[in-house]
């Protein structure tokens, strides 16, 4: 079982993701350079947060047009698991690997705070160890996190169970106050139709140790590990 973390110029949460996988979860993890044309052998590829290429033009736009993302698209199309966190989520939407777009926060302010999301879909490899309705405490830190989907896409996302996380208060209630950026329908994270690519604005990798104020982010990574272990057992059986 091997995790990869793609590192672009301007990535700044790559170390956090790498540290969590290696030191907290004790799993194999390797950095993947932005100039690579082939990914190599990975089970999960993480696109970390940051400000790739200065987020010039649009957040994630320039990173999304690099050869390594072309290789990532091949990986995703063959069923590989991809997790985009914050800027990584923006890159995935810009690359067309996830639907919709992330726009400027409605407050126009960079939001950096602890918050809560509710698990909406626990049938994915990313959420298998959570229950629908579980409330997870995770920080957000972004300026362009307002998820936008046109109405017909929004319906599709709901109908297909592609909304993975919504911003809620600590009791799991959807409210405007709990929404840090003006996202449509309080959407904090979504999956592609196939369910093997997930992006979210909050930072699960920064919520994996007690010293950081929350361990709620671990459920994503433990779900992925559980999913891969089940697959290995099934493969050997």
């Amino acid at each position: 079982m091997k995790f990869g973390v793609i590192v672009f110029p301007g990535s700044n949460c790559d170390l956090d993701a790498y540290h969590l996988v290696r030191d907290v979860l004790k799993r194999d993890v390797e950095y993947i350079g932005y100039d690579r044309r082939k990914l190599g052998n990975f089970d999960v590829v993480i696109l970390p947060g940051g400000f790739t290429y200065g987020d010039y033009l649009r957040s994630g736009a320039l990173a999304a047009r690099t050869p390594v993302i072309e290789a990532l698209a091949g990986f995703a199309n063959s069923g590989g698991l991809v997790l985009g966190i914050c800027n990584g989520f923006q890159v995935l939407t810009e690359a067309g690997l996830l639907p919709g777009a992330l726009c400027r926060n409605d407050s126009l302010q960079f939001r950096c705070r602890q918050g809560y999301v509710r698990v909406e879909t626990n049938t994915l490899a990313f959420t298998g160890k959570a229950k629908n309705g579980d409330v997870l405490k995770m920080p957000v830190a972004h300026g362009d996190g307002s998820y936008y989907a046109p109405p017909e896409l929004l319906r599709d996302l709901d109908d297909n169970g592609q909304v993975v996380f919504r911003y809620v208060d600590r009791d799991g209630r959807i409210s405007e106050a709990a929404n840090p950026n003006g996202s449509t329908a309080n959407i904090a994270g979504i999956a592609n139709r196939r369910g093997n690519v997930v992006g979210l604005m909050p930072h699960p990798e920064r919520a994996g140790e007690r010293a950081l104020g929350s361990v709620d982010g671990l459920v994503l990574f433990r779900s992925l590990i559980g999913h891969l272990q089940d697959r290995e057992v099934a493969g050997n059986g």
């Binding site: 033009l57 649009r58 736009a61 047009r65 939407t93 810009e94 639907p99 919709g100 777009a101 726009c103 936008y148 046109p150």
Partner: peptide, 9 residues
């Protein structure tokens, strides 16, 4: 189409 604009928004 491919870079300067994001056709979603």
């Amino acid at each position: 189409r491919r870079l300067l604009s994001n056709p979603v928004i």
